[in-house]
Simulated assay, not measured.
Amino acid sequence: MKPQDIIAGKTSLWIFGYGSLVWRPDFKYRSSEVGYINGYKRRFWHGDNFHRGNDELPGRVVTLIEDDDESTWGVAFEVTGSQVEEALRYLNVRETACGGYITKMVEFVPENKSQPPVQALVYIATSDNTLYLGPASPEEIGAQIAVCRGKTGHNLEYLLRLAEFMRTSCPHVEDHHLFSIEGAALAVVSYMLAAQ
């Protein structure tokens, strides 16, 4: 489904971010809410040969994997008026052209219980994408992240910023996948620094 088909005639749209969007949306928005979506788990199973890696050493970034028993925390951004088209034009380059993500509409549940759930646009990289890397152990993923960098910066920065977001904005949520990879990547970096 193309974003322009989803927003035909809409003057307002929510966009859910669960990776780098949580700290760097880079588009104008009216408001934002921390919250979650159900039925998906966040995994570092997608390759990145542009933002956080290159063709020789692809980085690893997050995508969503369907799982009825899981939920994924992040940030939803409300864009209105001209912001809708501007945000989608930007994200179509950042997430679709350079990242290989497709779009879906999901129900976003704000942490603030006074706010009702809303339908939100989300970008998901699927297993049929050429950049998709699939599962690996936290140690393998952490080692890969520790050494990769792309046009946006180090893959490690991406990992650490996401972990920092979860600790500061969602301290009650235990993201075992994320935190185990963070620990593995930092262990590799410590080893590399000690070996210098």
Rank of each mutant, 00 (worst) to 15 (best):
185 A>S: 08
116 P>I: 12
102 I>W: 00
10 K>H: 13
139 E>T: 06
12 S>A: 15
75 V>E: 04
136 A>G: 14
88 L>K: 08
147 V>W: 00
23 W>R: 08
165 F>W: 11
4 Q>C: 13
108 F>C: 05
148 C>A: 13
3 P>K: 08
46 H>M: 08
106 V>F: 01
44 F>H: 01
188 V>M: 03
57 L>R: 00
182 E>G: 07
136 A>H: 07
36 Y>C: 13
93 V>L: 10
124 I>M: 11
23 W>S: 09
190 S>C: 07
97 A>R: 08
28 K>N: 02
5 D>Y: 14
76 A>G: 08
181 I>M: 01
63 T>C: 14
93 V>P: 03
43 R>D: 10
96 T>V: 15
142 G>D: 02
182 E>H: 05
89 R>V: 08
157 E>N: 12
103 T>Q: 05
54 N>I: 06
104 K>I: 10
147 V>R: 00
171 P>H: 05
182 E>N: 11
185 A>Y: 05
97 A>F: 12
8 A>K: 15
68 D>P: 10
4 Q>P: 06
192 M>R: 04
16 F>L: 04
194 A>K: 01
193 L>M: 12
147 V>L: 00
185 A>E: 06
65 I>P: 03
48 D>N: 14
136 A>T: 07
132 Y>F: 15
162 L>H: 03
108 F>K: 07
127 S>Q: 12
161 R>T: 14
62 V>Y: 01
58 P>S: 09
19 G>M: 12
171 P>T: 09
168 T>K: 14
136 A>C: 14
167 R>F: 12
40 Y>Q: 07
121 L>W: 10
91 L>Y: 06
82 S>C: 01
64 L>H: 00
119 Q>Y: 14
54 N>Q: 06
9 G>Q: 15
58 P>H: 07
128 D>E: 11
127 S>D: 14
113 K>Y: 14
91 L>Q: 06
4 Q>I: 15
22 V>F: 00
82 S>P: 00
145 I>C: 00
105 M>P: 05
148 C>M: 03
65 I>H: 03
39 G>Q: 02
165 F>K: 06
67 D>L: 08
38 N>T: 13
167 R>E: 15
49 N>T: 07
138 P>A: 12
187 A>S: 12
98 C>V: 09
195 A>E: 06
33 E>G: 03
63 T>G: 13
38 N>R: 11
53 G>L: 04
